[in-house]
Write a protein that binds this DNA or RNA. Sequence first.
DNA 1: TCTATTTCAGACAAAAATGTCCGCTATTAT
DNA 2: ATAATAGCGGACATTTTTGTCTGAAATAGA
Lengths: 143, 143
Amino acid sequence: MFSKSCEYGIRAMIHIAQQQETTGRVSLKDIAREIDSPEAFTGKILQTLTREGLLNSLKGPTGGFELAREAGKINLAEIVLAVDGDNLFNGCALGLSTCDSEKPCPAHEKFAIVRDELTLMLRTSILDEMAMGLKNGVSFLTR
Amino acid sequence: MFSKSCEYGIRAMIHIAQQQETTGRVSLKDIAREIDSPEAFTGKILQTLTREGLLNSLKGPTGGFELAREAGKINLAEIVLAVDGDNLFNGCALGLSTCDSEKPCPAHEKFAIVRDELTLMLRTSILDEMAMGLKNGVSFLTR
DNA sequence: TCTATTTCAGACAAAAATGTCCGCTATTAT
DNA sequence: ATAATAGCGGACATTTTTGTCTGAAATAGA
């Protein structure tokens, strides 16, 4: 569904949202440890998220990452788009480049419905709600 | 969403379903040409589908592939499962190995709903209906 | 200023997915 | 029988994804 990079990216964003409320900026080392991901590789993904405007970063001691906007205004769809691009949202399920409602593939109609629901679900999955769940012990990020 | 292998596999199965009604067995060469896929690679995927019991194959002149069951009794979920495995149906959206309703990831609840709908959509996408759409010019497999 | 810390950038490495090639086997037709 | 055809199996090649390493740049604190 999502690439490994995207999985790490989402987990990192949720962790940052939950962590920065109490401790401010979060370091790569802390993030990688908490979400159980390879540190250097996660660094690359956080760079991407920073370039895409979803994170701010600061170098040096006390440096680290923080959300570029408040956690109530960032949703999963943005993160997926930033890391994996728009293929999940726009691409044909069967990989056809010409598939649209004018010239649909055999799965187009049914697939469009599910994809729209997936898109909606991602757009309505807000970081602060997920961070809240983590804090309350309702959900977990441990593998 | 699906791997390239899976996209080719689905397109091949739909083409076979539509083609075999009139011409019987369908050759790899014909399939690869019609669904615009690399021939040798597609051959590997058809071997998998044959091993998984979704296709029958026959060697030699007049050989080729045919559906192992009638097209009305094969759905997309079976093809996806045969080629890509069960990760799409069972795996955690964030890649956590421990994620379930007991110890859910922050996206578990919302994601489960969409995934169930995707599963249902795949189960109710039947080969003969899609083959029909192709034959009637309602849908297309050309890239 | 000097040092320690932390992110950034680019090169490099390993693994997985995608794709190719070739000889073998089974089957059909002559 | 023999030749031609078409799928099978395994090795090999390429590309993409995933992951690592190193040195540079920026920043904070002593």
